[in-house]
Design a protein around this nucleic acid. Structure first.
Lengths: 146, 146
DNA sequence: ATAAGTGCAAACTGTTTGCAGCCAG
DNA sequence: CTGGCTGCAAACAGTTTGCACTTAT
């Protein structure tokens, strides 16, 4: 694990401690997997990776810890719609959106966000103040497009 | 049913006929429910409404017909990102998105779409071909902002 | 010590599928 | 008439929950 990843783990683990959560081996290992992953992971994928270190870890524990992190605001759920369920990504990185492959369910980060001053003002004319947003992009990835 | 809704039903039904699908009572009634609905419906909600006319219609039939309409391109699946499953909206109206008030749940159509040639090309560089998309906007409406 | 966290199994939800009968074309 | 459509039941995948045991604090 790189120094930058170790730091990321510590940040998340400290947030857990602050809120009174206990740091178990499984919980810390789950955070490490999320920090080290290049892309959002599904609960099942996290489970597969955790089992290398914790051979008896259960999928339930993965789900429970994912919920804890989501409640904490440290993790955002990304819905892949269809193939495989929700994927999770830590949010200490910069703001961006994702595209999901409608065939295989893989996701990629897209460094683009539609929310600009123009959209904000359009919404204002409708009487709305924007609180949060999510751009869902669905496509076919290079691999599935053959 | 208003004249405009009747017209909407006919448009969708004709697309089904063109592709060789048969027009059963259940199928037509399902289209009518979608046309008449102000907002996207879940499979379960459609089923509830269909059962008023077709008391023995099965939920499977709802799903099967939803798939047919999605394959046809007449219906887009919208993931509510909450605990509920997928919602469906007919696409014979002009393309737009919605903003949802996080306090009262009211929605408004927003005549804005982030998908432009620039975004398409950004996605191409990621190896993705865009199939469909959905912009989810959450805000506080004029009424709730006091 | 003690309450949060865990593994197991079983329940639950939303969706899909195999089959025999039905009905639109 | 006949293949697509249907209802039924059962399977299915992803997720959640009740329980007794374990472990971090």
């Amino acid at each position: 694990m790189t120094a930058i990843n170790a730091a990321g783990t510590i940040i998340v683990v400290n947030r857990l401690k602050e809120k009174g959560y206990r740091i178990t081996g499984q919980r810390q290992a789950l955070v490490e997997q999320l920090v080290e992953s290049e892309e959002p992971l599904s609960a099942f994928e996290i489970w597969e990776r955790l089992r290398i270190q914790y051979k008896d870890v259960s999928l339930d524990t993965v789900y429970r810890n994912l919920h804890v992190l989501v409640d904490l605001g440290a993790l955002i759920p990304i819905n892949a719609m269809g193939k495989e369920g929700v994927r999770y990504e830590l949010v200490y990185t910069s703001h961006h959106h994702h595209i999901v492959c409608v065939k295989c369910g893989q996701t990629q980060c897209i460094d683009y966000c539609p929310v600009d001053p123009h959209l904000i003002s359009v919404l204002k004319t409708h009487g709305y103040e924007l609180v949060r947003h999510n751009l869902q992009l669905f496509g076919v990835c290079r691999h599935c497009n053959c």
